[in-house]
Amino acid sequence: MHFSIGMDIGLVGIKGVVMKGENIVAQVVKDTGVRPALAAKECYEQLLSDADISSDKIQAHGVSGWGSKTLSFDFDIEYLPDVVCLAKGAKWACPTSRMVVDVGAQTAKVARFDGNGSVKKYELSDKCASGTGRFLEIMSAALGLKVNNLGQIGQAASKLVEISSQCSVFAESEIISYVNTGEKTEDIVNGINYSIAKRVSTIIMRVGIQEDIIITGGVAKNDAVVRYIEEMVKVRFKDYGVDPQMIGAIGASLTAQQT
């Protein structure tokens, strides 16, 4: 069995895995920060140390994500298309899946793939922040909340404050208006979760809905958003026992192995 490393360089986090064949040996998440190259290097070193192996044992390196092409490494590496990795990782995490919805900080991606994990169709979010993790970041900052808590807070809501602004700049001032008019925080958060779920559902509908679907990326940890998307597109996401934000890195590792 060979070792391989996969890294997914996101806008907010760098996700890395060491795999031995199809099994995860170590996984690391680091903040991307303002110096992605340094963070990526640290992530790589920590992966080796956590897996307790030396770099010469690694047979393949796969890197994907928005920042991947801006980085240089001192070893031979495969730059892989994000969606290819996502599909491969989804297939690995849930072998029956044929569709993956990934909501990351910068982009939301939806892909349909076949039994080999080959992508047949995909769509990305529009070139604006609405419908991405970034939208949640901006909104949580405006409310002085931690983005990771939005799911939980929203589920305590007693009503839905609808955010109807189309642009995240307009939306930010809209939620401030709601704060000023005395709406409860949880109800506004509920509206924010609902709003992003709508945007993501739209992209899913653009690709065309498919059973056997999974959701990945940081936003997949927000249960409220996930439940709303399920209601809107009328499917249930399949469970898989892996950290949802690691799927891209896992896919990168597996794809690199196949070269």
């Binding site: 092409k69 495969e78 730059y79 892989l80 298309p81 969606v83 290819v84 080959s118 992508v119 047949k120 169709k121 995909y122 794809t255 070269t259």
Partner: peptide, 11 residues
């Protein structure tokens, strides 16, 4: 690379 060739390019 994602749809048409399903293969990757070495940079």
């Amino acid at each position: 690379e994602t749809i048409l060739t399903n293969s990757k390019k070495r940079v």
